[in-house]
Simulated scan of single mutants.
Amino acid sequence: MRQFTNEEIKKYLEDTNENVIPLQEVLGKCFICGIPLDQLELPEGPENQVVCLKDRSYFVESFDSYENAESELEFEPELLKKDESGLIPGEIILLAWCSGKNTKKRIPNYFYSSYAVDVATSIDKLLNKNFLEYGNYHEQLNALTVPQLSELLKHNKIKSKGIKKELVQRLLDNDIHLSNIPEVFKLTDEGEKILEYNEHIVSAHKDKYFPVYMATRYRKSFQYPIRFEELKLGVLDILIEEYSKKKWLFPLSFSLSECLEVKGHHLEFYYKNYEQALVYYLLLIIINLYDVTRKIRFGVTRVDYSDIDRLITVGNIDKKKFDYLFDRALGLFDFEGYDLELIFLDEIDDLRETICNIDYIKTQGYIEKYISGDFYIEHSPVKHYMLISDIKKY
């Protein structure tokens, strides 16, 4: 019988959270049957965090598929292309990560799994190219944690309370030189210049809504220098335009829904422009409901009102302003697969009222009026969305 380790399950959970579904939505439940684990008989190994005993064999099969997929990783071409300095994007992110870290620090697995970086080889490259060097003794001490510094001071019978800066200075003032602490990485002047020029790559890595390959793909479309926030909005505008005018020369990796969602999020949280953000969230939900009524999507469609509800509240948006923003959203509604001429005036009015009131009963009535076929609606007030299931195609 397949035996799992704690590390394997931990890695599986991290990958699920990053690439499949937020863990808060599934933790405590069986990943296969969805029933709370405390209501089920569980296996003995660490896999009991994610699966019940009855579904363990199915989980083993799915885990094997997950491992095989990881061993055959595919990367966007932009992530494999070297720049003028001879570095791929992942090595630039590694350069930023190494700054100030001691050489014994555990290096995250995402460098290999997300950026195709062989860490040991790439660190040697960064050192050989003089982008990275080893720091002095003071910098070595600064790379230690407060508990580690306190322990060293205690061992030498010196006062061990205080903030890191004070603890480091005490070790230096008492001329305590430790030979067994790890080396520390430090950026050279050339390394600082590399990071300054590639700020968009490092910022995209830290931004969970906007991938590094997209920032790299479109960087040359903008004059240098440009702030990451402006680059991100500019790229989203380019993609939305390509979708609306069908001008792309290759399949877009970033879907239309992702473009609208990321732009709405960016306008709301970076610029506090709640009205403009609402336009994009409205456009996203109109497309979702339009998909349902036109039977474009098949299976389960999630209609999520939480962003609309939040923005109406934080933006203090009244009915008159909502109607104006709704019309602006409809004015952007011109994408492949979505023909506004198929929506009648009475349907638009119904749609407007349905969304504005965040009323699930009205939503059900709207869908029953404009769709034929067997379906049911499951509404979760806590999660603030509903699932529209079993929709028939034409």
Rank of each mutant, 00 (worst) to 15 (best):
Leu132Ile: 12
Asp346Ala: 00
Ile296Tyr: 04
Tyr385Glu: 10
Ser113His: 06
Glu166Cys: 05
Ile176Glu: 03
His379Thr: 04
Phe254Thr: 11
Glu91Ser: 13
Gly135Ser: 02
Asn273Asp: 15
Ser372Cys: 06
Ser99Thr: 10
Asp15Glu: 13
Ile343Leu: 14
Ile308Lys: 05
Lys186Glu: 03
Glu78Pro: 00
Tyr305Leu: 11
Glu336Val: 15
Gln39Gly: 07
Glu353Thr: 03
Ala329Thr: 01
Ile92Val: 13
Val292Asn: 14
Val292Phe: 13
Asp118Asn: 04
Tyr58Met: 13
Asn142Val: 06
Glu41Tyr: 07
Ser57Val: 08
Lys263Ser: 06
Thr363Tyr: 00
Val303Phe: 10
Ile296Asp: 00
Asn68Leu: 14
Lys320Asn: 14
Asn142Ser: 05
Glu353Asp: 04
Met386Leu: 14
Asp173Arg: 09
Glu229Arg: 02
Glu25Ser: 01
Phe4Val: 14
Glu347Arg: 12
Thr363Phe: 08
Phe333Gln: 10
Asp189Val: 11
Pro22Leu: 11
Lys11Gln: 04
Ser57His: 05
Phe375His: 06
Ile296Lys: 12
Glu25Pro: 00
Val212Ala: 05
Leu94Val: 07
Lys263Thr: 11
Lys29Gln: 06
Val146His: 12
Gly191Ser: 07
Ser113Cys: 05
Lys362Ala: 11
Ile371Phe: 05
Leu40Trp: 06
Leu342Lys: 09
Pro251Glu: 08
Tyr137Leu: 08
Leu340Asn: 01
Phe269Asn: 07
Lys154Ile: 15
Ser65Lys: 15
Pro36Cys: 00
